[in-house]
Design a binder for these strands. Structure first.
Length: 648
RNA sequence: GCUGCCGUAGCUCAGGGGUAGAGCACUCCCUUGGUAAGGGAGAGGUCGGGAGUUCGAAUCUCCCCGGCAGCACCA
């Protein structure tokens, strides 16, 4: 029999008969390892204990102590066990797919009756029974015809479809435990009893389209989370609770920042506190953009369909536009308009006024552009995904040769802004040419190469999003992560060769002839609305001092100090600090509690002692310690802290 | 948009075919208290909207609107 040489993690090499399985190797080492083993890693590949090894390899036997394989197996086996539990309880349920995801797994089912939340406890109970049976997990390789016939006989049409989608030369692997089986590429645990029965939890039920396609059947998805032990599960559930506390919708209400109501779905009523954040951020962005060589413009909200037809939006984007038709009876002139969903066509109109020279390029045209998009109802989410919002938008009109330099400038600009706003970490995605696109391959080659070169020159790591570019050009996306790990695209830069053509933008080159400029669409924050949502969540409402809507509350301890309270407030306001007085007939405990919950970063308490000494007692948010300083010192330090990062 | 769940006072929520409830917030009175809730009294809702069943609907049924989770979408 042929021999193979296996190398163990400690460097030991040993000879084995070809075809030996990791289970046999583990048994040869010790009986306890045989029992504790969950899988192997063979040449870096996660390997089932039952799979034979046929060539020389590096091998490691994994146990539950090896977090990465352990979590993958626990979650994957949980998915199978859950599917088995569901089919044992409701035998008419059809199974589809059940992959491992971050923190857990899901499985999609097709069943007439919808699952209800109470079913989750039922399924969990059944899962624990299955785990306690300690059924051995067996795997077999089947040929295609047998597998297809098997699933046809068992009325599992989705599995038949999955097999059809697997390339013909790949073996079909079946996994069994008890009488239940699933088509699965593995690996899996040795037996169901290896899954910790107290470290998983079924979380939610939701709809999901078969194969992610909204034209196909809506399945029922059950989500679960699973860990190595009970304590990790507890920690995870606790983390979710903490994340829920920093939900911007909850904090927005508690801090009295904004509200939304059903007469204007997806649009925001900004309250005074919220609007202070908004304007502070906008003023900051305006200063930064001016410094970076942008010119600011402003363009119309309601624009005739003729322009949208010319830009291509009418054809490609109409479903997402608010159409405004003037009532014929009252109309002085009949027209069909749309609220602008984007600013680009209007910016080209400004560019097209008068003749432009190559000397005018690059022309960086910025607008805090108020846009309205009719987003699908299910997409709306607090202030993060809305129908009315303001982009910190700009279009850079430039030559092809300038793409790289302008991209690099933008990445530097964005990095500076994000850093000022407390986001050192963000991810960059690069989306290249989609299948249906405008423009020649040569142009795409140039644009993609320029974007990548600039990204690398700016020192940014990026991940590739193949085929996800806009039809008019490749794009970069800058992504921030919210409190519960969801990603939000904020900044973007898109190269566009199409719109200048469609809207006939030209400049006169050095050669005296007309040329087509390239447009770079770019946004740094993305939208003020979304970015403020992310700011609120990432700071759990405790915004940096300069952005805090209420910076200082001066609270009297005794009403004899009221006059002094007003004096302190006036001094702070004169120095540019957002300060307010609290001379209500309440105890200082009450005031401190209320303003702490309101996330006011500094509470200045004054009683008779402070009045006599002309001092204030400062209590910072989140600290129990108070500090007594003179009024002058307080005004100086707080006014310094109130300055935006570019002014400090 | 799709699947499921939800909508009762400003907020958080209980109730459920027969006169609408609690806590907090709010208003007034007492209290002047030194760093996370001092005490008392009062006011506040045609139970998301519409239709139906019924002697009677917040409660049951249907339609619509909005919200939440996920999916799809994010040009």
């Amino acid at each position: 029999m042929a021999q193979i040489q296996l190398t163990f993690p400690d460097g030991n090499k040993r000879e084995f008969n070809a075809g030996i399985t990791p289970a046999e190797i583990a048994a040869g080492i010790s009986n306890s390892l045989r029992k504790k083993a969950i899988s192997a890693t063979v040449n870096g590949q996660h390997w089932d204990l039952q799979w034979p090894i046929t060539e020389d390899a590096e091998i490691a036997i994994n146990t539950m102590k090896d977090a990465e394989p352990a979590l993958e197996l626990i979650r994957h086996d949980c998915a199978h066990i859950m599917a088995r539990a569901v089919q044992e309880i409701w035998p008419d349920t059809k199974v589809t797919i059940g992959p491992v995801i971050k923190d857990g797994w899901y499985y999609d089912f097709d069943r007439e009756e919808p699952f209800v939340p109470e079913d989750l406890a039922l399924i969990e109970k059944k899962m624990k029974e299955i785990i306690n049976k300690r059924d051995e997990v067996r795997t077999e390789i089947w040929d295609r015809d047998r597998a297809v016939q098997f699933y046809k006989d068992n009325n599992e049409p989705y599995k038949v479809e999955l097999i059809d989608a697997i390339p013909g030369n790949e073996p079909l692997r079946m996994y069994w435990h008890g009488d239940w089986q699933d088509l699965c590429r593995g690996p899996h645990l040795q037996n169901t009893g290896q899954v910790p029965a107290d470290a998983f939890k079924l979380m939610s039920i939701a709809g999901a389209y078969w194969r992610g396609d909204s034209d196909r059947a809506m399945l029922q998805r059950i989500y679960g989370v699973g860990f190595q032990n009970k304590n990790d599960l507890k920690k995870h559930l606790h983390m979710l609770e903490e994340a829920a506390k920093r939900d911007h919708r909850k904090l927005g209400r508690e801090m009295d920042l904004f509200h939304m109501q059903e007469e204007a779905p997806g649009q925001i009523f900004w309250h005074p506190n919220g609007w202070r954040i908004y304007t502070e951020l906008q003023n900051y962005m305006r200063r930064r953009q001016n410094q970076a060589g942008y010119v600011e413009v402003n363009t119309p909200q309601v624009v005739d369909r003729k322009l949208w037809e010319a830009s291509g939006h009418w054809e490609k984007y109409q479903d997402h536009m608010f159409i405004v038709e003037v009532d014929e009876e009252h109309a002085r002139e009949k027209s069909v308009n749309a609220l602008k969903p984007m600013n680009c066509p209007c910016h080209v109109q400004i560019f097209n006024q008068g003749l432009k020279s190559y000397r005018d390029l690059p022309l960086r045209m910025a607008e805090f552009g108020s846009c309205n998009r009719y987003e699908p109802s299910g997409a709306l989410h607090g202030i993060m995904r809305v129908r009315g919002f303001v982009q910190d938008d700009a279009h850079i009109f430039c030559t092809e040769a300038q793409i790289e330099e302008e991209t690099k400038r933008f990445i530097d600009f964005l990095s500076l802004i994000y850093k000022d706003l407390g986001f050192e970490e963000f991810s960059v995605k690069f989306s290249d040419r989609p299948e249906t696109r405008a423009g020649s391959d040569e142009v795409w080659d140039k644009a993609e190469a320029a974007l990548i070169a600039a990204t690398e020159a700016a020192g940014s790591e990026y991940t590739l999003n193949p085929g996800e570019g806009a039809f008019y050009g490749p794009k970069l996306e800058f992504v921030l992560t919210d409190a519960i790990g969801r990603d939000w695209q904020c900044g973007t830069l898109q190269v566009d060769f199409v719109l200048p053509e469609r809207l006939d933008a030209t400049y006169i080159g050095e050669d005296g002839a007309k040329h087509r400029p390239v447009m770079l669409h770019r946004a740094t924050l993305g939208s003020f609305e979304r970015f403020i949502g992310i700011l609120i969540e990432s700071h759990a409402g405790k915004l940096p001092f300069w952005l805090a809507p209420r910076q200082v509350v001066v609270a009297s301890i005794i009403s004899d100090a009221d006059d002094y309270v007003h004096e302190v407030v006036a001094a702070l306001q004169a120095a540019g600090v957002r300060a307010e007085a609290d001379i209500r007939n309440e105890k200082i405990n009450y005031k401190v509690r209320e303003h702490s919950l309101g996330k006011v970063p500094a509470i200045l308490a004054v009683g008779m002692r402070e009045v006599e000494e002309r001092t204030v007692s400062i209590r910072r948010l989140g600290e129990k310690q108070t500090r007594v300083v003179t009024l002058d010192e307080a005004v100086t330090s707080l006014s310094q802290e109130a300055k935006a990062p570019d002014l400090a």
